[in-house]
Simulated assay, not measured.
Amino acid sequence: MHHIKTIEGQFQAQGLRFALVAARFNDFIVDRLVGGAVDYLTRNGATRENMTLVRVPGAFEMPLAAKKLAASGNYDGVICLGAVIRGATPHFDFVSGEAAKGIAHAMLETGVPIGFGVLTTDTLEQAIERAGSKAGNKGVEAASAVLEMVRVMEQL
C-alpha cells in the first residue's frame, strides 16, 4: 500500500466559537442534546463564553437560523439540535426531510460546518434513549462531527 497524504481533524476546540440552534418543540429532549453538545465541546477545550444558544420553534425553522449564524462570520461551527417524533409531529417525514435538506444547503452555501443533531424517531422512548447516555447522545455526535469538520476544513 502506497503512503497517501491524509488530512484529518484533531478534536481540539480551543479558541473556536460555536452556535447551537435548539428547537423549543420537545424541549425536555432537546435540552439533553444541548447538554451533551456543550459538555462535549467544553471537554475538548471550548469555553461557554464562546458558545451562543439560539432557540427556534422547531426543526423546520432551524435551517434559516443556522444559515444566518453560519453566514455571520462569528462562528466556526453551528450545531442544530432537535427532536422530531413521529407520533407527536404532523407531517413527520416532510418536517424531518426539509430540516435535513435545509441544513445541508446552509452548510454548502456558507462553507461553515453545521451539525445535524436532530433526532428522528418513531416514539418518545426512542428519543429519550438517544438523548441520554445508554444509546449515546445525538448532541454529542453532532458536536463531534462539527469539531472534526472545522479542523479538516482549515487544512483544505
Rank of each mutant, 00 (worst) to 15 (best):
29 I>G: 04
29 I>R: 11
30 V>Y: 01
30 V>W: 00
30 V>M: 05
32 R>A: 07
33 L>A: 13
33 L>S: 09
34 V>M: 02
35 G>M: 05
35 G>K: 10
36 G>E: 00
37 A>Q: 03
37 A>D: 01
37 A>M: 00
38 V>S: 04
38 V>E: 04
39 D>Q: 08
39 D>V: 03
40 Y>D: 06
41 L>I: 12
42 T>M: 04
44 N>W: 02
44 N>P: 10
45 G>K: 15
49 E>W: 03
49 E>M: 10
50 N>E: 05
51 M>G: 10
51 M>I: 12
53 L>S: 06
57 P>C: 10
57 P>K: 06
58 G>T: 04
59 A>I: 01
61 E>N: 13
62 M>C: 08
63 P>C: 06
64 L>K: 11
64 L>G: 10
66 A>K: 13
67 K>T: 04
70 A>T: 06
73 G>A: 08
74 N>D: 12
75 Y>I: 03
75 Y>V: 06
80 C>G: 13
83 A>R: 06
84 V>S: 07
85 I>E: 00
85 I>F: 00
86 R>Q: 11
87 G>Q: 06
90 P>C: 01
90 P>Q: 03
93 D>C: 05
94 F>N: 14
94 F>T: 15
96 S>N: 06
96 S>W: 00
96 S>G: 05
96 S>M: 07
97 G>W: 01
97 G>N: 09
99 A>L: 07
99 A>I: 10
99 A>P: 11
101 K>Q: 14
102 G>Q: 13
103 I>A: 15
103 I>V: 15
104 A>M: 15
106 A>D: 12
106 A>Q: 14
107 M>A: 15
107 M>F: 02
108 L>T: 10
112 V>K: 11
112 V>R: 11
113 P>F: 01
115 G>N: 08
118 V>P: 09
120 T>C: 08
120 T>I: 09
121 T>K: 13
122 D>W: 03
124 L>H: 12
125 E>N: 12
126 Q>F: 02
126 Q>T: 06
126 Q>A: 09
127 A>P: 14
127 A>T: 05
130 R>P: 11
130 R>Q: 10
130 R>W: 02
132 G>E: 03
132 G>D: 03
134 K>A: 14
135 A>W: 02
137 N>E: 02
138 K>A: 05
138 K>V: 09
139 G>S: 11
